[in-house]
Design a protein around this nucleic acid. Structure first.
Lengths: 197, 197
DNA sequence: TAAAAAAAACCGACTGAACGGTTTGTATTT
DNA sequence: AAATACAAACCGTTCAGTCGGTTTTTTTTA
C-alpha cells in the first residue's frame, strides 16, 4: 500500500482508538501506551504520525470541529428552507446527533477539557460565531440563545457523565427544542404559558 | 491547637488548594504533590487526612454537593414564597452563584470528570431528585426541564472552559431564566412568541 | 529497466521525570 | 505513655518522549 494511504489509515486508527478509550475508560486513561494498544500499532509508529500527545488531542479536536461544521452545513442545505431559524435548527440537530453516538467525536471535548484545556480556544471561537448567526436570524435572540444553551446542557451533561436523564427523555427534550412552532406561538403546538384548544 | 481543629484546618486547606489548582492549571494537573505544595502542608500530612487521591476527589464532591444542597435550601427558605416554581428558581440561583465564583466548588465536577468519573454517580442521583421536584411543581414540566437544562448549559460551558459568552452575557441569560413571568406569559415581561404592549 | 539510495512508516527497548502511595521519624495532643 | 498529626525521604510504577533499528515505498542513478 502506498505511504499516503498507510499514514492516513494509521492516523484514523489512532483517532478511533482515542475515542474508544475516552468513552470506555474516561479521559484520565487516555495515554500514548493505551492508544497504541487499542489501535494495534506500536508506540513508535503512533509517535511518527503524532509528534506529541498534545498533537493527538489537537487532531481529535480538529476532527470534532469538522464533524460539527459539516453536519450543521449539511442540515442547513437539506432542511434550511423548512426553518425560520435554520442555523439554530442545525445546531440542535448536530448536538443531538453528537450525543446519540457512543463513540462520538464530541468525546474529543472531554479529552481536551481533562488534559489540554488550551485546545478549547478554537471551539469557543467557533461557538461564538455560531451564536452570532443564531441571534441574528431570530425574532427573539435571547430565546434562541436559551434554546441553544439547553441543547448544550443536554449534550455536555451526557458527554461528561452528568446527565440524570434516560436516552428517551433526552431525545424527547431535543425534539422539543427543535420544534420551532412551540417556541414562536404558532398553532398546532403546545406553547409556553398557554394551551392550544 | 486541639487535634480536631488541626485536622479540619488541614482538610479545608487541601480542598481549597485542589480547587485553586483545577481553576488555574486544569484538572490534569491535580496531583498529590501539587496539592501539598499549594496547601503548604507535606505530602505525608495530606495523606494522613486523605488515604488516597480518590479520597481527595470524593471529599471535593461531597463539599460541592453540600454547597449546592444548602444554597438551594436557603434560597427556598428566603424566597420560595415569591415563586410559583421555588425549586427551579433555587436551582437556577445555585448554578448562577456557582459559576460566578472563580474558585467555585463546582470545579469538583471538573476534577471528577477528568480523573474519577465514577464519583459522578451521586451527583446524577441528586440531580434526578431535583428534576423530579422541578417537574412536579411546574404547570409545564417540559418547559421547566428545558429552563433547568439551559442553566446547566451555561454552568457546564463556563466551568469546562467552553463558554463563548462574556460574564455580562451569562448573567443576563441567568436573569432571563430566573424570570418566572417571562415563562408563564404573565404581563410585565416579554414572553416567548409575542410582545407585551 | 534494474539496482541502489533515500525517504517514510513503523517497531520495541529504553530514559528520565512525575506520579501515587509507603515508611520511618518527630512534634503535639490526649 | 499512647495516640494523632505531620514531615521528609523513599519506592515501584506509569508516563511522554527518544533512540537505534527493521521494513516498505519512492526516487535516483547507472
Amino acid at each position: 500500500m502506498d505511504n499516503n494511504t498507510r499514514s492516513e489509515r494509521t492516523r484514523a486508527a489512532v483517532i478511533q482508538a482515542a475515542l474508544a478509550i475516552i468513552a470506555r475508560d474516561g479521559a484520565g486513561h487516555l495515554t500514548l501506551d493505551a492508544i497504541a494498544r487499542e489501535s494495534g500499532i506500536s508506540k513508535g509508529g503512533l509517535m511518527h504520525q503524532f509528534r506529541t500527545k498534545k498533537a493527538v488531542l489537537a487532531a481529535l479536536m480538529e476532527h470534532q470541529a469538522a464533524f460539527f461544521e459539516n453536519y450543521a452545513r449539511d442540515h442547513i442545505a437539506a432542511h434550511g428552507h423548512q426553518h425560520a431559524q435554520p442555523r439554530l435548527a442545525a445546531e440542535i440537530a448536530t448536538l443531538h446527533a453528537a450525543v446519540a453516538d457512543p463513540r462520538s467525536l464530541a468525546l474529543a471535548l472531554l479529552g481536551a477539557v481533562a488534559q489540554e484545556p488550551e485546545l478549547l480556544g478554537t471551539t469557543r471561537m467557533a461557538d461564538r460565531e455560531a451564536l452570532e448567526v443564531i441571534r441574528a436570524e431570530a425574532a427573539d435572540p435571547d430565546l434562541a440563545t436559551l434554546r441553544w444553551l439547553a441543547a448544550r446542557g443536554l449534550t455536555l451533561s451526557s458527554l461528561f457523565g452528568l446527565s440524570p436523564l434516560t436516552d428517551a427523555e433526552r431525545d424527547h427534550l431535543f425534539t422539543l427544542l427543535a420544534d420551532e412552532a412551540r417556541w414562536t406561538g404558532q398553532p398546532g403546538s403546545d406553547q409556553a404559558g398557554g394551551k392550544q384548544g
